[in-house]
Design a protein around this nucleic acid. Structure first.
Lengths: 187, 187
DNA sequence: ACCTGAACACCGTTCAAGT
DNA sequence: ACCTGAACACCGTTCAAGT
């Protein structure tokens, strides 16, 4: 039993080191091979595979904490700002974050279909719905659209190149989307 | 000279056969390897590479005709419909086409940076600008946004999964974008 | 000129062998 | 239980050899 415990501790240490190393390596080269990550972490390829069977699951492991933060940011923003402003800030934060941290977009795409990812995906959809419903209740948007639709749009914007031009473009397109959400004046 | 001519004819035949085969193979498996395409076309890998140094350039070769059609469709639609309706129809056509024919999205991304692709990219930007300006002149949208921005948005929508759900989602998001473009009522 | 296809470096993935 | 790392099938790319 102590042996089992010891083994488990080893496994956990490995997992943590893989995550720490992968975060750094992928920050430098987003397309770094899983071989190179395993080597940099000082583990065999099989060990990396045991813990993270796909590249997406590795990225998910790296950014899970940040994603939780992002989700919990939604109610905080609603406390501090008017709903539409909160929604806008949250969306900007999301896209900014997603573009800087490579692989988040692919992870979101996987979340659409892969059962393992939905536990991370749903809270994000809920965050969007929370923000959008608040805007609707306050009368700041005409009618809320599907929360998944909007989250997917944010995920797509994340895929624009991380250049200055790409960043500016995603900001403008986000502006367009919000303009589309805003209440149309009934005349 | 006749020899040179004969050679050139061979090269052209090869090129055409590669394109015809690649079109079929990629329709069945969008991720088909270049090896398998070369083999299916009955040419060496080097020959495929000579004609199409990247996967994107191969996709571009396959769909260049269709892209030209799409570009020339813009003025035709403007003749037949009111500008906003024309713009909407063109956009739907674009997204529909891009999602069905895999690889078009990657090609468009390459077009953003790669010099070789810009000759195909610019006419599409021009088509978007033509449609959007017509809408603005007719007073159907408040003010035109950057044509490249909008084209990139269309390209992103193309990346949604080619399922019934993905198709419906891209339609709804396109609707959102157009709602954002439409003239805000000045009150 | 143009084509062929073996060869190269590399990728994700597996699995027998160790502890 | 968990880890290692050689091995496998495959990828895009190159290039000496042919015609």
């Amino acid at each position: 039993m102590t042996q089992t415990h010891k083994r488990r501790a080893d496994a956990r240490t490995n997992r943590d080191r893989i995550l720490a190393v992968a975060r750094d390596v992928l920050a430098i080269d987003p397309a770094a091979s899983l071989h190179s990550i395993a080597k940099a972490a000082g583990v065999g390829q099989g060990t990396l595979y045991r813990h993270f069977p796909t590249r997406e699951s590795l990225v998910l492991g790296i950014y899970r904490d940040s994603i939780d933060e992002l989700v919990s940011l939604a109610p905080s923003l609603l406390d501090a700002f008017k709903p539409l402003e909160a929604f806008r800030r949250w969306s900007e934060r999301f896209v900014d974050y997603g573009r800087k941290k490579h692989g988040v977009a692919d992870m979101l795409r996987a979340a659409m279909t892969d059962q393992d990812f939905r536990e991370t995906y749903w809270p994000m959809v809920d965050a969007v719905r929370l923000l959008m419903d608040a805007c609707a209740d306050a009368g700041e948007i005409s009618k809320p659209i599907d929360a998944e639709d909007f989250l997917q749009l944010l995920a797509l914007l994340t895929q624009l190149p991380p250049t200055a031009e790409g960043t500016a473009r995603s900001e403008r397109l986000l502006e367009l989307a919000f303009h589309g959400l805003e209440r149309s004046e009934d005349h």
